[in-house]
Simulated assay, not measured.
Amino acid sequence: MTKYIMWGSYCEDVLEKRAPHRQAHLDGLAQQKESGVLITIGPTKDVTKVFGIYEAESEDIVRQLVENDPYWKNGIWTEYTIKEWIQAF
């Protein structure tokens, strides 16, 4: 399967705004990890950007996962891009 990277941005005041959606977000990520589609995901230390690595059959699948995440649906993630990734090592 193909690997994809997701790079996105967080909203202003993310720590406060994400609170009501955090558990649903984490539960969804845990399911993705368990299924093997999510390799890793997390924020930058300053909590302005999010970075994830996925392994999926298509970019559309990754887009669906991102856009169905509570953080996207509730404006915690404000933009994102997905690129096919070649793991050299």
Rank of each mutant, 00 (worst) to 15 (best):
Ile53Leu: 09
Ile86Gln: 11
Ile82Leu: 12
Thr78Ser: 04
Trp77Glu: 00
Trp77Tyr: 09
Gly75Val: 04
Leu65Glu: 07
Leu65His: 15
Gln32Asn: 13
Ile82Trp: 06
Pro43Trp: 00
Gln87Ser: 15
Leu15Gly: 06
Phe51Leu: 15
Asn68Thr: 11
Glu57Val: 10
Gly36Lys: 02
Tyr4Val: 01
Ala24Arg: 12
Gln32Pro: 04
Lys3Arg: 13
Ile61Lys: 14
Glu16Val: 12
Arg18Tyr: 02
Lys83Phe: 01
Trp7Ile: 15
Gln31Glu: 12
Leu38Cys: 07
Ser35Arg: 11
Asp60Tyr: 00
Asn68Gln: 14
Cys11Gln: 00
Gln23Gly: 07
Ile76Glu: 07
Gly42Asp: 06
Lys49Phe: 01
Gly8Ala: 08
Thr2His: 13
Ser58Glu: 05
Lys33Ser: 07
Pro70Arg: 08
Ile53Arg: 02
Ile82Asp: 03
Ile39Ala: 12
Lys49Ser: 04
Trp85Phe: 14
Tyr10Val: 02
Ser9Cys: 03
Trp77Ile: 05
Asp69Gly: 05
Asn74Met: 07
Ala24Trp: 00
Ile39Thr: 11
Val62Tyr: 04
Ser35Phe: 03
Glu67Trp: 00
Thr40Glu: 15
Asp60Cys: 00
Glu67Ile: 02
His21Trp: 13
Arg22Ile: 04
Gln87Ala: 13
Gly8Phe: 10
Ile86Arg: 08
Gly28Val: 01
Ser58Phe: 02
His21Val: 01
Gln23Met: 11
Phe51Thr: 09
Tyr80Asn: 08
Glu84Ile: 09
Glu16Phe: 09
Ser35Ala: 12
Trp72Phe: 07
Ala88Val: 15
Thr48Gln: 15
Asn68Ser: 14
Gln64Trp: 07
Tyr4Phe: 13
Leu65Gln: 13
Gly8Thr: 08
Ile53Glu: 08
Val50Leu: 11
Ala56Val: 09
Ala30Thr: 06
Glu67Gly: 05
